[in-house]
Amino acid sequence: MQTGILRIKAKLQTGWIYPLLTAGYFFLVIAWFSSARAGTGTAPLSTWFVDMNQYTAAAHGSLKCEDCHGPMNSMKAPHPDPGAASFLKTRIKRDFDYQACQKCHKTAYKRFLKGEHAKAAAKEKLSGTPSKTGEAPNCGDCHSAHYSGSHLSRAQIGKQMTETCGACHPEQKRSFLADYHGKAAVNLGYDKAAFCTDCHGAHTTLSLKDKDVALNACRRCHFDATPEFANIIIHDSTKTIALKNETKKSSLKWIHWLGTLSLVFVVIVLVFFYMHTGLLMLRKLHKKLRRHK
């Protein structure tokens, strides 16, 4: 004698459910493996200890330690005392002399020295306190010397860059991802769209507050851009960016006001017609059911 549940069970057990479940589990296992593999691709947290497996696979893998760190006895300094309280406590990225980078990356280093981040560093040195955004970055703050990947595609670099820049500029990252450029470039991996450095420059990191500089940045892709074109707002944010720029402030006010107005219009129209349709439908159903009684 079979109850209802048992009968359903018997039906389900007829063959097709097992291949389906197997396929499902197989898919899950594959997905887990691929996500685990993807996880190893990102750089681990910076520590004093270098994972040599990852190091040799990364962009600088062919370099010897001494190529960047110099021979161990060059400073004529004694080996630090492992028992001392400050042992391995110094701040790695603040203490390393990144001039070593310019041995190979001459242009990038020159541009960095001319750029906004270097200016921020100089200001920080003068005043002694970091700016609101945070401590001025040096090479190592954006690039991982030991683990940065090589042969990455434009879209892969761009995605990493958005995270890197966004760590100190979260509002800029948020507004970029809400803009067409960010959506196409980062969310959809469309490599013809602009990433951070395509407008701001890789190592000069221009602020683009200056109209002419901004227009030049636009014209890299939009060849026919007019001066007014540079006033199209990419970073739609009033939090940190627009505070110093009066034109942008007033434009944003209009954008938000009219945007809200159109949203209110949409909601009113939809609410009216949904209620209208719903009520009419109930009435007609009522009439039909009554008629057939």
Partner: peptide, 27 residues
Amino acid sequence: FPEAFTGIFPGYFINIAAHFHFHEAVL
């Protein structure tokens, strides 16, 4: 064609157009 339209309108009109386009699409 933002290049052509910013020849006539201020730049932020493109942003307003984007809002309208999305809201009208939802509607």
